[in-house]
Write a protein that binds this DNA or RNA. Structure first.
Lengths: 350, 350
DNA sequence: TTGTATGCGTTATCAG
DNA sequence: CTGATAACGCATACAA
């Protein structure tokens, strides 16, 4: 039976809407118009070069004329491929993700892929739900600063290509910014400004990157013979930063790193409203260099992350995995960079 | 032929990955395990109540045991439905979209829908591309402050349910914040502070909302017998705001509204770095009340938008359209609200 | 209530 | 190089 009629329920896409008459054209329509077999149309459209130039021309012309658009569902059914990759960020409200989203997005568009974005609102549970949902429809998944456990991530990665950003999970591809260079510069600067004791306001326990940043800071402080302590572990938000104020004041540090700019901003504002002057009485540093970190008074000194590159690079790596191309070496980690503004200064009494 | 074997290319999802053995279970697998017909499984899983409680139980049990997951593509093929709605924002970098995204997202999750997010980077062309791409895979589309022309939007809306946020297009459902109340309060406040001439820094020409806000401001100023003028039309970004500085200084206004907070922040900072003191020499007002608008010195006075409600409401309306339920009345526009902070004060010389 | 038969639009296999 | 045909997994008229 080579029935080319389009019978059956018209439940298809583009049906029943006011302006839309009949359902979208298919390769069958193109086939009759071009006088070839549907399978030839399929070939011509999906694998260039596997069909004679002449018929290919006829077919593309016919497709153009009918304003043909592939039905991605029909295509995905036999192939399992969707030309879509997912990106899950832990908090859409954190400006730090702006650029990683942009980076991934542009990289995706450039390769004719679509990016599917979701957030987990800092909840491991929601993150898992979102990840599972996405996994069913995407070719690969990018997890930015995931709150999931290593096991959960490994499980996801066993089903589809997964790349994690700013985290390291055994057996899973990852793209991590090199915190070293920014931290090295920052601590050296602090030392030069007479600081001898610093503290660190950590982010969530589950945050691999928070841990990583602390280790880096600790190591450099040791090197300089400075004292370094963690004062708290709180949500990576402005409010989290505020809540760190008491702990910070209780300590003896004259300079404090916060896990990210959001926390640094919260901490600074809370301290200021309690009467402290920044940086005269305390130096504050954040991480990321987000939108708004230069709005504050004083503007925030911070360690800038290569957010855009992270997004681009992560997308590239999923695609490599999807296409089974051997990624070769892990690409070098893009470096961080110290951005000195007004929230850091000479140590009090130094 | 009721062949239940799973032959053919194993190109399906979850194939060829290290840990994954055979392809995912289907309703056929469930059917044999539960001892019923596949179509019964389909019914049991998609339309609760159309199958006897007993068999339903058997089927859900079997599904559970096999860890069954519907293949959304296979489902989408005959039905055309994907349980997914798209949201396109004009600039993912604008914090104003945080809450509309969150709103739409939570509303979507609540109804077991997935939100697909994209941005257009303030480009009408990219927006159209993104919209077209999405249209093929979603059940409905939300356009937040689109830069598209009315015709283009109408065309999209003729194919799938479309809802626009903060814009009005003939024949297309829309959700718009009521600017009136916020503006009314703001202008009244300004009048009380002795201002008699205000100016407006407009956003993009294509921005319906920028126009809307201006009309609202103009009307209230007229009412108070105040003079009101537009000084520029620029990109709705911090940099756009900076570029408005010269025009603002050239005018005689003692208070200026900016299309949004981003512009207001840019304008304020530029003016300040040129030596002006805010609000003593000039009062500045923004719109939206975004993240960071209270970080500045002085903190920005602004007209807060019901961003979250806009997102929620927009999602609801697409869903109504998708489900063909008569939306009934246009829901009332959620109101804006004046938020007085430090960037507004008594008119200079008043 | 449940089973039967078929279609959804595309890709893939196998002949010719 | 091209044509015929069988999956891909699910939903749904229709019959029983």
């Amino acid at each position: 039976m080579t029935d080319t009629t389009k019978a059956g329920g018209d439940a298809g896409r583009a049906a029943a809407r006011p302006g839309t008459a009949k359902s979208a054209p298919t390769i069958y329509d193109i086939a009759v118009l071009a006088g070839v077999n549907p399978s030839t149309v399929s070939r011509a459209l999906s694998k260039p070069g596997r069909v004679s130039a002449k018929t290919a021309q006829k077919i593309t012309d016919a497709a153009q004329e009918l304003n043909y658009q592939v039905n991605v569902f029909a295509r995905a059914l036999p192939t399992g491929r969707t030309q879509t990759v997912g990106l899950i960020v832990s908090d859409i409200t954190n400006p730090a993700y702006f650029e990683v989203i942009r980076g991934a997005e542009t990289a995706a568009s450039g390769r004719d892929y679509t990016l599917m974005l979701a957030e987990s609102a800092e909840s491991a549970e929601l993150e898992l739900t979102a990840a599972r949902r996405m996994l069913a429809t995407v070719d690969g998944l990018i997890l930015a600063s995931p709150r999931l456990s290593d096991e959960e991530i490994g499980l996801l990665a066993s089903k589809k290509p997964v790349v994690v950003i700013n985290r390291s999970v055994a057996g899973v591809a990852s793209v991590v910014a090199d915190t070293e260079v920014g931290v090295t510069d920052a601590v050296r600067h602090l030392a030069a400004m007479g600081h001898t004791a610093i503290s660190y306001v950590a982010g969530p326990e589950r945050s691999w990157m928070s841990q990583r940043r602390w280790e880096s800071i600790k190591a450099r402080c040791d090197w300089h013979g400075m004292q370094a302590t963690v004062v708290a572990s709180l949500p990576p938000t402005v409010d989290g930063g505020r809540r760190a104020a008491a702990g910070v004041r209780a300590g003896a540090a004259t300079a404090v790193f916060c896990y990210n700019d959001l926390m640094a901003i919260g901490l600074m504002r809370e301290l200021q409203s309690a009467g402290l002057t920044i940086p005269e009485e305390l130096s504050i540093l954040g991480f990321d260099n987000i939108f708004g970190s230069d709005f504050t008074t004083p503007p925030l000194s911070t360690i800038k992350s290569p957010l855009h590159e992270l997004g681009v690079s992560a997308f590239r790596r999923v695609l490599d995995a999807v296409d089974q191309v051997d990624a070769g070496q892990e690409p070098p980690a893009p470096p961080t960079e110290l951005v000195l503004r007004g929230s850091t200064g000479r140590a009090k009494g130094a």
